[in-house]
Simulated assay, not measured.
Amino acid sequence: MKGSGERNRLGFTLIELLVVIIILGLLAGIVIPRVVGRVDQARRESTRIQLKALKGALEQFRMDNGFYPTTEQGLRALVEKPEIPPVPKRWHRYLDELPRDGWGNEFVYLSPGEDGHPYELFSVGPDGLEGTEDDLSVWNLVKGE
């Protein structure tokens, strides 16, 4: 015949289960913010890389054609020959496809730009809203920001 002490060893007590749940909660509280922070950091880095690639393609377009695409032509001028004037005479495909930023948004392109820049090129960032603090501009990348 089994004693009452032997029966208790066959399963976990409610207190033991609560301790395990609390420990798992604490670990999740430490690990999840770090993982989420890394995902956001990876999205920002991906966006920076895409901005640099777009900047390079825009510079190549200008060297070939003597001007940057207009706002109306947009970044699409890097993957399809523009039909809107001024039509580039020495155009070729500069990119296979237009990239999106790390959050899946299209990049914003305006030409001419402001503050003496020949164009504006930026990501609206994680909030998807233009003109907020989380926007990433190609010109800030040049400055190392």
Rank of each mutant, 00 (worst) to 15 (best):
R48A: 14
Y68C: 08
L78M: 08
A53K: 14
Q60I: 10
I49E: 15
T71C: 03
I84H: 02
G66P: 02
N65W: 04
W91A: 12
L75M: 10
P69I: 02
P88L: 05
I84G: 06
G56W: 06
G56R: 07
R90C: 09
L51C: 05
I49T: 14
A53Q: 14
R44W: 13
H92D: 12
R62D: 06
K55R: 14
Q73P: 03
V79T: 15
A57I: 05
F61V: 00
L51P: 02
D64Q: 08
Y68Q: 03
Q41G: 06
P69K: 01
E80L: 15
G66C: 07
E72I: 01
P85H: 04
N65E: 03
A42V: 07
R48M: 14
E72N: 12
L75D: 06
Q60G: 11
R62K: 13
I84V: 12
Q50H: 15
A57W: 05
P82L: 07
R43Y: 03
L75C: 10
M63P: 00
A42E: 10
S46P: 00
L58C: 09
S46G: 11
L75E: 09
F61M: 01
Q41E: 15
K81Q: 14
T71A: 00
P88E: 05
M63Y: 09
L54T: 00
A53R: 13
V79A: 11
T70I: 09
T47N: 06
D64H: 09
D64Y: 08
A77R: 01
E80F: 14
T70M: 11
E45G: 01
L51R: 05
P85G: 06
R43H: 04
W91P: 10
E80W: 12
H92E: 15
P88Q: 00
E45K: 14
P82I: 06
L51W: 03
A57K: 05
L75Q: 08
A77N: 04
G66E: 08
K89D: 12
Q41P: 00
K81V: 08
Q73F: 02
E83Y: 12
P85N: 06
R48Q: 15
K55T: 10
E72A: 15
A53H: 11
E72M: 10
M63L: 14
Q41Y: 13
L75R: 04
A57H: 05
R90A: 15
E59A: 08
E80I: 11
E59H: 01
K55P: 00
E59W: 04
E59C: 00
